[in-house]
């Protein structure tokens, strides 16, 4: 089967409040898939269920044919959390060395990969600075670099471009598209419409419901609108102003 991710009837609630309501979703190998939704709609919750950080109340998630959670799966997934989880006392390179070792990289190979990912996120010149001295955008890029270290088959990125300036955002998107062209499957979340436009397919999420899943063009067509923003409103059951 070519589905790299299969979500079946996932629900999750916190303290009696439903945050995700019976989500079904399939993502195919080699896709760049975007989860688009306003903040608080449940994107991060869904992402954490995919990586096995959180447990659903019901339903199942399968990744690469294996049921989540599974330790060996984590080796094949690259993950970037919404909030940067970095060791501020250490330099960028030391952070990368640490995570590279956790993914089983060592020796020359490890150093090669570290340089490669630093180049991708344009931090090569700042690799020996402590992370405490990094700006928000630089931390975001370092987090992305960490997720790329072990060349995973599946990248799960939670709001990867938040706080990154437009020029760099462009170059990161170029890199993501290049990775997809090389066969990496990418699932990311965003609340920026023009980013969602670049995805192969997007899932619209609102108040814990996945209201529509399709390519950006098909979504616009289906809702009879010209922008994704309007499509989002119409397909979410809203009325255009």
């Amino acid at each position: 089967m070519s589905n790299i991710l299969e979500i079946r009837d996932i629900s999750r609630s916190f303290h009696g409040r439903t945050v995700l309501q019976s989500i079904h979703l399939q993502v195919e190998r080699g896709e760049l898939f975007g989860l688009l939704g306003p903040s608080g709609s449940g994107k991060t919750t869904l992402i954490k269920l995919m990586t096995g950080m959180d447990r659903s109340d019901s339903g199942e998630i399968h990744i690469l044919g294996e049921k989540v959670p599974k330790l060996s799966l984590l080796k094949r997934i690259g993950y970037m959390a919404q909030s940067d989880a970095l060791y501020n006392e250490l330099t960028a390179r030391q952070n990368l060395q640490f995570f590279a070792s956790l993914y089983g990289l060592s020796g020359v190979r490890r150093n090669e990969r570290i340089d490669a990912v630093l180049r991708v996120v344009d931090l090569l010149d700042h690799k020996d600075k402590t992370v405490a001295a990094y700006s928000g955008g630089m931390k975001r890029r370092l987090s992305l670099a960490i997720s790329l270290l072990h060349e995973p088959e599946l990248l799960i990125l939670d709001e990867p471009t938040v706080g990154i300036d437009p020029v760099l955002r462009q170059s990161i998107w170029q890199e993501l598209l290049a990775l997809r062209d090389q066969g990496t499957t990418i699932i990311l979340t965003t609340h920026v419409m023009d980013e969602a436009d670049k995805c192969d397919r997007i899932g619209l999420i609102r108040d814990g419901h996945l209201t529509a899943v399709d390519s950006p063009a098909a979504l616009k067509e289906r809702s009879g609108t010209t922008t994704l923003e309007n499509a989002f409103i119409v397909l979410g059951g809203g009325v255009l102003a």
Partner: peptide, 14 residues
């Protein structure tokens, strides 16, 4: 609290 534990546990570490 800084989320690094969660990030750590998203790697294949036991």
């Amino acid at each position: 609290t800084t989320g690094t534990l969660e990030r750590l546990l998203a790697t294949p570490i036991r």
